[in-house]
Amino acid sequence: MIDVQNLSKTYGTFAAVDRLSFKAEAGEVVGLLGPNGAGKTTTMRMLTGFMPPSAGSARIAGYDILNDSLEVRRRVGYLPERVPVYPDMTVQGYIQFWANLRGVRDARRQTERVLESVHLLERRKTLIRNLSKGMRQRLGLAQALVHDPPVVILDEPTIGIDPQQVIEVRQSVRALGEKHTVLFSTHILSEAEQVCDRVIIINHGRILAQGTPATLRQQLQPGDHLYVQISGASSAAGQRLLAEIEGVQQVQPQGIGFHVRAAVRANLRGDIAQRVVQAGYQLEELRPVAMTLEDIFLDLLGREEGA
């Protein structure tokens, strides 16, 4: 549905987006994850036909974003980062305007349908200037959906609203995946993990990693992470013992046990158990520690800055 090939955008000599390539299949919810200035908004602006790329290309629903811009724009719903509204219009007037502009046939009915779905139907006569921020965000979402586009692009839709509404917006994005292909951006990892089928991590306009949250965690987790708790040994003795085991790279006290980082190898846990028992101590607990996407993300960014 979305097929991006070497998409680039340079401002002068500065590359805001640098040879980005990725795909999104129909019905997939894809998250663009990156810190401030990573190039998320710039990427979305190119995909929605707002600005042309400096190099590379992309196809949306089979149409080229440069050569068939109007066809692309017909098939995309876009919620920009700063939800743009006309404060002097009513909720209904605003949605109907966008419906008409995008050539929706039954604009009135579609407007009511979409307002219903974002729980703004009772507010349809309200002037937009009198809406709360969360309502405005939902209004922006309604605007992006009123023409029932196959592709929906949402730029940080959960920014600046209260936690209750954040949860609601996440749920609606998740639900959108049933009928639409969704590309949405965020700098919050847990959000990407909750909402997306697939996450693309970008920084400085380049892709650092992509995959499902689960595979990302697996692929990027450098080595095995284990939690080990030993009784009968002093903390220092326990640490020394674990550090001597083949393949162990790092041992850090964590609570009443240790966090062990080791290279991936066969029978690591067996060896640990054996050594602990041989030394005359008892093994109280031995379990794998799953790194959160958060850790992976920070780790990746850290590595990039270091390189």
């Binding site: 602006r45 929605t48 036909g49 707002f50 109007l70 066809e71 724009r73 017909r74 995309v76 876009y78 920009p80 700063r82 743009p84 509204v85 006309y86 404060p87 966008w98 502009l101 995008r102 050539g103 605007q143």
Partner: peptide
């Protein structure tokens, strides 16, 4: 100023 131009320019009109 309001940013609505971004939406206008991504609507399927010239």
């Amino acid at each position: 100023r309001e940013g609505t131009l971004e939406l206008l320019l991504t609507a399927p009109v010239s």
